Deep mutational scan, measured.
Amino acid sequence: RSRTAFTAQQLEALEKTFQKTHYPDVVMRERLAMCTNLPEARVQVWFKNRRAKFRK
């Protein structure tokens, strides 16, 4: 699988949600996936990586 390049709009939506909660539930992730045209699995991995970045 190749690396996913996120658009500015996708990142904005993801970051906005991350500010609200670092652990979105499956419903919220699926809604984000639909809004951003990304698979739910990519949204889940983005949050996992973003939490790791946040802890540093």
Rank of each mutant, 00 (worst) to 15 (best):
R3V: 14
Q44R: 06
C35M: 14
N49D: 15
F47L: 08
N37Q: 12
L11A: 09
N49C: 05
F6S: 06
E15A: 00
K20P: 00
E30Q: 07
T21G: 03
P39A: 07
F6D: 00
T4V: 09
L32E: 02
Q10K: 01
L32P: 01
R3G: 15
Q19W: 06
R51H: 01
F6P: 10
S2T: 13
K48P: 04
P39N: 10
R51I: 05
K48H: 09
W46D: 06
Q10Y: 03
K16G: 13
A33H: 03
N37F: 09
Q19E: 14
P39D: 13
R1V: 12
R31I: 04
K20G: 07
H22V: 05
A5T: 13
V27S: 09
N37W: 01
Y23P: 00
A52Y: 10
K48Q: 13
R3N: 15
E12W: 02
A5L: 10
A52D: 09
F18D: 00
P39R: 06
A52E: 15
V43C: 00
R42A: 15
F18C: 08
R50F: 04
A13P: 05
S2H: 12
F6Y: 12
D25S: 05
E12K: 04
Q44S: 09
K20Q: 13
C35N: 13
V26N: 14
L38K: 01
R50V: 05
F47T: 02
M34Y: 04
F6K: 06
K53H: 10
Q19Y: 08
A52S: 08
R42H: 14
Q9C: 08
K48N: 05
N37C: 04
T7Q: 04
V26H: 12
V45E: 05
E30C: 08
K16T: 12
Q9E: 11
V26W: 14
Q44G: 08
K48I: 11
K16P: 00
K48F: 08
A41P: 12
L38R: 02
V27L: 12
K53N: 10
T36E: 08
L11N: 08
V27G: 14
R50E: 13
T7R: 08
L38P: 03
E15S: 00
R31M: 07
A52M: 10
V43E: 05
K53P: 05
A41W: 15
A5N: 15
W46L: 02
R42G: 06
T17D: 03
V43K: 04
C35T: 13
R1A: 11
A8D: 09
